[in-house]
């Protein structure tokens, strides 16, 4: 079943289009990666899907519902969450408060969900009353993902989760992304760290200068010598 589809998106900032006629889809329980060089429009694609940017053209559908042009605070209620690349936590709030803010729109008892997040990220549990501003980059990234998962979304959008992390942490974060996926969440990951991402991805899209230049299964992209040479740095 298709959980998310973007068709013919053209989008950008102000007058400048960065994304040109890009289409993609996400099936249930998939991990799909969006890779490509700097400035290819990967983050712009995520922001457009999540309603932070309005597409000049094109349609975004979440499940059976069109969500084009809806604001993020509406989209988040419909079962899609987003983790920005930078500034993705509330630094002066504690870990627990960050997670509570992720559940802001919930009016029911979400203590079970909170416990599930601590099971997923055991490191966070002992420090739940610590301010997030004091945490390391890897721990912050876990808080950011936990915050986005509090609403139990069907779709999770991750913008460069491994950016500026030490190699050991990169591996750990990708492991966590796999764990999250196993709980039934379909995930789109935008990454610079292409090879690592493709290894855990069912499918991938290669973006360059705002256009989709290649799409295939993660494995096939990894094995494709030409794509490797042109877009994945040899």
């Amino acid at each position: 079943m298709r959980v998310l589809e973007a068709r013919n998106l053209t989008s950008g900032y102000g007058e400048t289009d960065i994304l040109h006629d890009v289409s993609m889809k996400l099936e249930e329980k998939e991990i799909v990666s969006i890779i490509g060089p700097n400035g290819a429009g990967k983050s712009t694609l995520l922001k457009t899907i999540f309603g932070i940017l309005r597409p000049r053209q094109g349609v975004v559908r979440l499940g059976d519902e069109e969500i084009t042009g809806l604001n993020p605070d509406k989209i988040v209620r419909k079962g899609m969450s987003y983790v920005p690349q930078v500034n993705n936590v509330f630094p002066s709030l504690t870990i627990q408060e960050n997670l509570e803010m992720g559940a802001f729109v919930r009016t029911d008892d979400y203590r079970d969900r909170l416990q599930e997040m601590y099971d997923l990220f055991p490191l966070l549990k002992d420090r739940r009353n610590q301010k997030v501003g004091r945490l390391s980059g890897g721990q912050r990234q876990m808080v950011a993902m936990g915050r986005a998962l509090m609403l139990d979304p069907k779709v999770l959008l991750l913008d460069e989760p491994s950016a500026s992390l030490a190699p050991l942490l990169v591996e750990m974060i990708f492991e966590k992304i796999g764990d999250i996926n196993k709980t039934g969440v379909a995930i789109i990951v935008v990454e610079q760290n292409a090879r690592e991402t493709l290894k855990i991805s069912d499918r991938g899209y290669v973006l360059a200068t705002g256009r989709t230049v290649f799409e295939d299964t993660g494995k096939a992209i990894l094995e494709n010598k030409e794509v490797g040479k042109l877009y994945l740095g040899g």
């Binding site: 605070d73 988040v76 500034n87 936590v89 915050r147």
Partner: peptide
């Protein structure tokens, strides 16, 4: 309170508050 925490969150990062679903 929930609103009090949301106020502190919004002061920290209004953009993130919005994508978390907080009615800023």
């Amino acid at each position: 309170t929930k609103m009090g925490k949301a106020m502190r969150a919004t002061a920290d990062n209004m953009e993130l508050a919005r994508v978390s679903g907080i009615d800023t």
